[in-house]
Design a protein around this nucleic acid. Structure first.
Lengths: 109, 109
DNA sequence: TAAGTATTTGGTAAAATAGCCAAATAGTGT
DNA sequence: ACACTATTTGGCTATTTTACCAAATACTTA
């Protein structure tokens, strides 16, 4: 495999990795409704402030969100709403998996 | 946050995590063209056979691919082609990031 | 300037992931 | 049964990720 190809895959994987965490998924969902300050997101996620801040910096480094400091607070907003389309696909994978699970169960009887 | 909500996020994150690796991304791309046996995928990825096999089991456990043993070989196929749509979005995130990078560079001058 | 609030950063420990090798398993042909 | 090939599994180490706490920073208001 060529080096350029390798890097292309790595960049893509990094963005998916940034999304691949329950707390970060929740924040992305919430940010889809509009910008939120870190303190609001922290309440929603229910983790330590520093933990939430680090999760946000992961999303930011991936280029998925943008931050905007206003006074004491920092507001984050979603830069790429297209990621929301992932969720429908992901749900369909989960549904199909369930269906196969049930079918396998029937056969096992 | 409720427990059901927590689990929903966890299930979604697990599927994204399964995709979030360069080798697994490559395999998904290749499988989009049609089924492939492990040995073919191994050549494409260029890693140890056992490593490739484990990556495939991650994709399988996530419900993204299905395996089918025929003789000595095991053929894998993509179960959810909708994940291919992720790539366009991911590319757009990368492009937007580049563009912002260039703009920041201009300002810095 | 001092005190208070919101956020980030640094440090650290625990857990998850990734890679390779060697060994086990499964199917084929002799 | 034996040798041969394709794949998976187990074991190990190195790396990465995650979460929390404590300390640093940034901004506001008294």
């Amino acid at each position: 495999m060529k080096k350029a190809e390798q890097e292309r895959l790595l960049r893509r994987a990094d963005i998916l990795k940034a999304l691949a965490h329950p707390s970060r998924l929740l924040m992305v969902e919430k940010l889809a409704e509009g910008e939120r300050c870190v303190c609001e997101l922290q309440k929603m996620v229910g983790a330590d402030m520093s933990t939430v801040s680090k999760h946000l910096s992961v999303l930011k480094r991936a280029g998925l969100v943008q931050d905007d400091k206003r006074g004491l607070q920092v507001f984050y907003r979603l830069l790429s709403p297209c990621v929301l389309n992932f969720f429908t696909c992901v749900e369909s994978v989960i549904e199909a998996r369930k269906k196969r699970g049930r079918a396998a169960c029937e056969i096992a009887k």
